[in-house]
Design a protein around this nucleic acid. Structure first.
Lengths: 249, 249
DNA sequence: CAAACTTAGTGTATTTTGTACACAAACTAA
DNA sequence: TTAGTTTGTGTACAAAATACACTAAGTTTG
């Protein structure tokens, strides 16, 4: 019993972390499927008084007073979707005073926030993940979390369509600077998959031969001595990334 | 008298704008002189109780509740340095809870802020200007504003050295995407000046002939039929930018 | 089991861009 | 007149971008 008591004393007091009412983070999580990019959205849940026909939103929430922005983004993503240990990068900060003024957004904020009228600026984060590596398990005020094709995203809550646009633009720039494949493709992938990924992100089309030549000139995309199996056509060779062979410009 | 009265009624009541205690903006303003980049810094002024040996800082302050972040950055820059109508771009947001905890920063905050202990996240903005186009006239809590060579910047207040680094990195990326010359060079400039600008921003050196060839391949750097005058060597030809001939990638 | 279907994989010619490199010309100051 | 300083130029080679069409290797179907 004594040791149990001592153990209890070592547990820090369960004070609620203090919330900063003015700053939130939102996460724009992309995944790639063969027919394009998808983004992770949540369906808001207003506790008891469920609001029908509410808008989808990016996972996001207010930050705690004692956590960094990066930590907040990770926590919020985990709380709302169950996704853990995802490397997030900051994209842009949105701070229009009117960004939370739409009626539906106000209704929702009133149903879940202590200070629903407070000015909120939000810091957008983004990441690329392999859908299959993560199990979505919504909690907190997300009734559901789901992948939606980027080309089919409807009107979202707040200014979240603008956040999505900015994150896409960020991706496009970034893919020029470093290869983004290892985040999004399976460990072993075909060059056709890689090409489709580039075409999806850059919203463009490339010549197959030139693309292959360019890719194979790099030292970090490495052919394996394996082929696809069970496809109804000539099987493609498989490749992998060697992250260690890539060096930033 | 009547019309005067009516006129008075139309003037909005002089309420102080409400300040948001949790969000600030900071401006990283660069200028280019022949021997490198300079950045605009202020010397803080703690009202009566002047703190000796205080650190230099980037111009920045808390935002008002009813203004956008962009507007706040413009206002703050104007209030602190007199610089007006500068096109600012958002760079990055810094939100470490400990970023304002240095003793000197705390002392200063206590001397000027209503809530000196409040968590403050800051949104960094940057711009490139021609020094000669603007007259610096510090006011508010800036005792002085001054241009400091980027290579000679000392330790700054808060996390402002990190903000400066990030803004420099932003510049380097940006100069690959669009020519930054028109912001920083005189209307008519020599190719040597342009080359020095690129070398300053990218912190690199280029071959003169190759640089000239590359520049002249563009359609937006246009030779004038004029030469430098009064220089103690062969006078260089002058060029100008034609912004309309440049199209983003 | 042959034919049809689907995707993989390959080479060449041309143009454009990058890179390395050295010396004469134009002006001023002494 | 000379010394000093910066401008302005050309060539040869290597690397990268671009345009373009057919055969090969599997599976499915009839």
């Amino acid at each position: 019993m004594l040791s149990f008591y001592i153990c209890l004393r070592k547990i820090p007091p369960m004070t609620e972390p203090r919330i900063n009412p003015n700053v939130s983070v939102d996460c724009v999580i992309f995944s790639f499927e063969d027919d394009g990019l998808e983004v992770l959205l949540i369906e808001r849940n207003a506790g008891q008084n469920r609001i029908e026909d509410d808008l989808l939103a990016l996972p996001g929430n207010l930050i705690y007073e004692d956590e960094t922005l990066d930590a907040a983004a990770n926590r919020v993503l985990r709380e709302l979707t169950g996704l853990k240990n995802i490397y997030l990068e900051q994209v842009y900060t949105f701070g229009d005073p009117a960004r939370i003024n739409k009626q539906k957004d106000q209704d929702w904020l009133h149903s879940i926030r202590a200070h629903p009228e407070a000015r909120v600026i939000t810091v957008a984060y983004t990441s690329l993940v392999k859908k299959s590596n993560f199990k979505i398990s919504p909690s907190s005020f997300a009734r559901q979390a789901m992948w939606v094709k980027v080309k089919e995203v409807p009107q979202l809550a707040f200014d979240h369509n603008a956040l999505l646009e900015k994150a896409l633009e960020y991706l496009k720039h970034k893919i020029y600077i470093e290869p983004l494949g290892y985040e999004l493709l399976p460990e072993r992938f075909t060059l056709a998959q890689l090409q489709k990924l580039y075409e999806a992100i850059l919203d463009d089309h490339f010549d197959k031969r030139n693309f292959r030549r360019k890719v194979l000139r790099t030292s970090f995309i490495i052919p394996l001595n394996e082929k696809q199996k069970g496809v109804a056509h000539k099987p493609a060779g498989l490749y992998r990334f060697d992250k260690s062979k890539f060096h930033k410009i």
